[in-house]
Simulated assay, not measured.
Amino acid sequence: MNRFRNLVLATSMLAAHATQAADFTVTSPDFAEGKVQQAQFAAGMGCTGKDLSPAISWANAPEGTKSFVVTLYDKDAPTGSGWWHWVAIDIPADVTALDGGAGSETTKMPAGAVTIANDAGVAGFGGACPPVGEVHDYTITVKALSVAKLPVPPGASAALVGFVSNMNTLASATISAKGSR
């Protein structure tokens, strides 16, 4: 009988967590039409954007959230492993938005937040620049974490941040937009 009670309790806890996770959302006025805005494109490598990180906001983080991780990833980049355009960790739990350009000028990030080097090796946001004729899918992900500080070493890669943050994620929300030139 205890086994059945434990199973029911575990199932109800998982259902409560899934409900909380389903309520967690991220939005971006810069991704609202499903297309990457020109300002979010790179200012180089053949692209003529402004390298401005998009404005984003999130709502309904689950109870127990102690920090957030924000990433912007291009799964379609011709690298064999995609391309991390932006990785920010240790965003305090009381923060629910980042202004446009916050990842481009890291001094605009909230106190305590840490910006990890993107795949171009730069700490901060790097704009989209898909090869001519290709349409890429750019995904912003916000993860609500159970830890205030993500336990990664200085100079951690985006992949390591993804691995460690996944182990500490209470909920995750995404929004995507297409970009081409």
Score class of each variant (00 low, 15 high):
N168K: 05
H17N: 13
G133A: 04
T48P: 04
A32G: 11
M13T: 12
V36N: 07
V95R: 01
S53F: 02
V122W: 09
T174F: 05
S165P: 07
I89T: 08
L7K: 13
T107H: 11
S172G: 08
N118P: 10
C47D: 14
M45G: 12
M45A: 14
D51K: 08
A77W: 04
A117V: 02
A61N: 03
A18T: 12
P151M: 00
G100Y: 05
S176I: 07
I116D: 03
T106V: 09
V8L: 14
G155I: 00
E134V: 12
T71Y: 01
H85Y: 04
S176K: 13
A15F: 09
K143W: 03
G100T: 09
P153N: 00
R3N: 13
V114R: 13
A43G: 11
A43H: 13
T19E: 12
S57Q: 09
T65M: 06
A22V: 04
M1R: 14
M109P: 07
P131R: 13
V70S: 09
A144F: 02
N6P: 10
I140P: 04
A113P: 13
A15K: 09
S146F: 01
F31C: 06
A159G: 07
A128P: 08
G103L: 01
G34P: 11
V8K: 14
V87L: 01
W84F: 06
